[in-house]
């Protein structure tokens, strides 16, 4: 595990050290920003609350920003994700319901490979923080399961520019897998009253890695112009599975999203006045 983390850090360092060799920074780099809203199905199980899987639907709002950085001579982009989702689910017998809410932020860096003029392959890593809860409306002293964690993720992306006759479409597929981090979890039969009211919080923050946590986020989008706007339609599949302190938790969602894309130069200055063109990290 340490080797993989070290390799990532060395890769980023070596990439940045090459920055001085060839300057691609003459033309300004724009920020690609998209805000999408969506809805979809959720499947949630947390054995701290119930041994059963709850299913239902949820809403999601997602903001994404991507910009090239100076690292490795403008070959490394920075990507930020802010995701908020809220789900309403019921037990299989439909006699109980639960609400779940999650907020996560991730900051990722990707190295760009250009194997084909229309294709970009991005590989890198991201740091992700997540806060959330699953609240079971029927339970008494174990009504909620709190989620709080920070992860280092492996991330890869493919962006493909497609020309359907005269109509340009940009397809993107991104996959993210948490590698290691820290997470909160009560002990098997420990109440939140004991942790928070009585202060027995020993061992509730744990190291997480592939041995006790597996997650994957598949994100597929298509950008296409409509009039003067660029629309982004997407599908986001998130799978999250943990087995910590004898408590199994799994959250699976399938969301369909739609929103607008904005391409802008955040700080133009003199450099921008000299030219009307700019480079995008995305297109």
């Amino acid at each position: 595990m340490k080797r993989i983390v070290s390799l990532l850090i060395i890769t980023l360092y070596l990439s940045s050290s090459l920055a001085a060799q060839e300057d691609k920074g003459e033309q300004p780099w724009s920020v690609n920003e998209a805000t999408l809203v969506g809805a979809g199905g959720y499947n949630i199980k947390d054995t701290y609350l119930s041994p059963l899987k709850y299913t239902g639907w949820g809403m999601r709002i997602l903001n994404e920003r991507m910009k090239m950085t100076r690292l490795a001579n403008y070959n490394v982009s920075r990507q930020q994700f802010i995701n908020l989702d809220l789900a309403f689910t019921r037990n299989p017998a439909e006699t109980a319901s639960s609400f779940a809410g999650f907020a996560d932020y991730s900051l990722g860096y990707h190295y760009h490979f250009l194997p084909d003029p229309n294709l970009k392959i991005l590989t890198g890593a991201s740091l992700k923080g997540l806060f959330g809860f699953i609240y079971n409306t029927r339970n008494g002293n174990n009504p909620a399961s709190a989620k709080a964690e920070i992860d280092l993720n492996l991330s890869a992306m493919a962006i493909y520019r497609l020309q359907l006759k005269e109509y340009p479409v940009t397809l993107r597929y991104q996959v993210e897998i948490p590698l290691s981090g820290v997470m909160f979890s009560p002990h098997f039969g420990q109440s939140y009253y004991e942790i928070f009211n009585l202060g027995n919080n020993d061992g509730v923050v744990l190291f997480s890695s592939l041995h006790n946590k597996f997650g994957i986020r598949n994100y597929l989008t298509a950008d296409f112009p409509v009039g003067n706007f660029t629309i982004r339609a997407g599908y986001l599949n998130s799978y999250y599975n943990t087995d910590v302190n004898g408590i199994q938790s799994h959250i699976v969602s399938h969301s369909f999203l739609i929103g607008f894309v904005k391409e802008f130069v955040s700080f133009g200055g003199k450099k921008l006045k000299k030219t009307n063109s700019y480079n995008s990290a995305y297109y």
Partner: peptide
């Protein structure tokens, strides 16, 4: 200190 759980038919147990 009581906890809750449930059965496949939807009954709750404390």
């Amino acid at each position: 200190f009581p906890f809750n759980s449930e059965l496949p038919n939807g009954w709750s147990v404390r």
